[in-house]
Design a protein around this nucleic acid. Structure first.
Lengths: 208, 208, 208, 208
DNA sequence: GATGAATGAGCTTTCATTCAT
DNA sequence: AATGAATGAAAGCTCATTCAT
């Protein structure tokens, strides 16, 4: 339906930027369907018709936001890991970075969390988002493969499973942060999760 | 003036049940907003007006579904844990039970996963659902407290954090199951998650 | 569409009566359109379907109420006037009687006041009510004609105009009672109206 | 996907005015409830959605009409009375002006007459209309008070009662004009009413 | 005598979108 | 670059009415 991403030559750059920021926030918190052009326009201080000056349709606004957000998250993740570091250390840093991002840019994380269900609900989103999605997964998978090569991981666990495990934990944490917005509780939780990763949470009784 | 009114053939009793089942499925997969009375009615084989014979509003249909689903999930969880068993064993069983439930009744799990965001999006849902929610959390918390009393848990981890950790893992798994509907991948993932719980995934090198 | 008036052989006489009373009240205060079968039935303690046991349609309920009410008002008016009394005395008594009726049976007067506009709004009501309406007018006209015969009235005023004048005053008073439900204010007003009838309100200055 | 949106030919500016005129007429003759957005829009030559471009809800259309109409009636009344004239003369002129208005703008008078019952039927109308209502009453009351100061009125009649009396007569006349749309009959009636005001209708026999 | 289940029509309102200016 | 006026479609909901039981 469109050239992906932000329109290249938008003169009112400022307006366009504000539109994207507001759309990100609204798509993330209200959802795609509940985000109406009217409210979006009002928040930015323009009319609904003006939106169509920048994007050919509501879907295209969504896709543009998606590109921005994916970029940001990928960069955050990439900046938090070192190829030559141990995976447990990398995971620990990733969790911290993403937790920080959740605090600084709640809309970004919330948006990412919502993409999969929105894509399922609105086929046009799926179609538009599919070709550019999966970047985050690829980063994680690469990291897992390296760790396995280096023998840092139980050999019964495949790279795929390991990546899935990370996905589960990161997604679970993301969801948690959005549902309970409680900094102290979150930081305690993260401490516990790190203990879990190094196997120091449960003391299995010897007679088990 | 003459063809209106009740049709000659109308099944009768279980319409309400079919309505609830169909609503559960649709609320879970399409979301509250995208579930229209019309499609709902068509799926059940009635008209939109007939819905209002059973429920005073769309929100009330949602709340009724919520009650049913919460009941089912709570019973499933409760049936999978034994008060006197070790927590690691209980968690393991819970994960299996919920994975099974996801396969047998995908709509139930999907619905539960979606409640929090729907509640955030639609204040009326929040208002209606709040007073009866939190049952699952209480069950988990109780289990965690018992485990701590028995000394099965690292003393640096509070009951609250432990419960949050379980929430994160279960929610993450639930989400995973919904996004990637792949039985083999899921079963491998669950195996890996169980290894994680007993601290046997990562081999932290001693020189770290 | 129907045999006018109350159905002759309604077994649940009690229910039917309560239905008519409640309908009178609701038609009068809420209006025909805003009076729904559902609320009507609820007020009487039956289901909407049961209404159709007594009356073939909503319009027929209205017509039945109309018959009852017209009867009551006509009897009240007739009881308040004496053929051989002076018209000014008769008017005075009529005003008092109707004021009393307004207090005792507000719904009756309110209903009468609303008939004309309802008839205009709903052609079916007009059609059903027209043939039996006009009774009140005929009573007033007769009274006016007698007064003129007896020379009690300024000869520049026709019987028709006199009747219209009475209609205006009675309707205006009825409306007033319904809008401002204030007994003291009403009784003062009626006193003033009686003074008006005998020409003792305004003192026209002689130099006019 | 392509024929939607604004049509090529659309008149533009005065749509709102035409909407208000048509709404006034329909609210007055059909009533608020019976005036549907659809018919209203059709009369004006637009779609129902376009109404919401000008007013946020049906109630707001009503309130806008009310403002307009109240203005017009107040101006008409004020233009027909002179502060220094005798009250009987002012009343006479008022009656004539309003009768003329009824002929020229039947919808205006009909609307005014209906406001009180509509307000009673629809609480939202009451809430919206209350703060700006009562202007007409204040004008009448002021006139009555002045007349009493000047000694033009029987001292047994309070200003309030006098105002109520005028209200009754004017409302009764307004109603009459709407029910029987008959110019000749109305003009005769008005003549008779004027005689009534100067006490020249009934000849009370001295031996009574 | 009365109910429960159901209907078709219609209501107010919202939405994404269009297009002349 | 942006607006105001307008649209077709569709949503949630209500209503008078029907009919088997």
């Amino acid at each position: 339906m469109s050239k992906l991403g932000r329109p290249t030559n938008c003169a009112g750059v400022d307006t366009c930027q504000r539109l994207l920021i507001e759309a990100r926030r609204s798509f993330a918190t209200e959802g795609f369907a509940a985000t109406t052009n009217k409210r979006l326009a009002q928040s930015v201080g323009i009319t609904t018709a003006a939106i169509y000056h920048y994007f050919p349709s509501k879907i295209d606004v969504y896709v543009a936001v998606f590109s921005d957000v994916q970029d940001l998250v990928c960069k955050t993740i990439e900046a938090s890991i070192r190829p030559d570091a141990q995976i447990s250390e990398n995971i620990s840093n990733m969790v911290d970075s993403l937790a920080l991002l959740t605090v600084r840019e709640p809309a970004v994380v919330a948006f990412v969390m919502s993409v999969s269900s929105e894509a399922h609900r609105h086929p046009e989103i799926l179609k538009a988002v599919l070709p550019v999605s999966g970047r985050i997964g690829r980063i994680l998978l690469q990291m897992c493969e390296k760790a396995i090569e280096r023998g840092e991981v139980n050999s019964n666990v495949s790279a795929q499973s390991l990546e899935d495990m990370l996905t589960v934990i990161l997604a679970g944490l993301g969801r948690f942060n959005m549902v309970y917005r409680d900094a102290r509780r979150t930081s305690e939780l993260i401490k516990a999760m790190k203990l879990l990763l190094v196997g120091e949470v449960f003391r299995v009784s010897s007679n088990a």
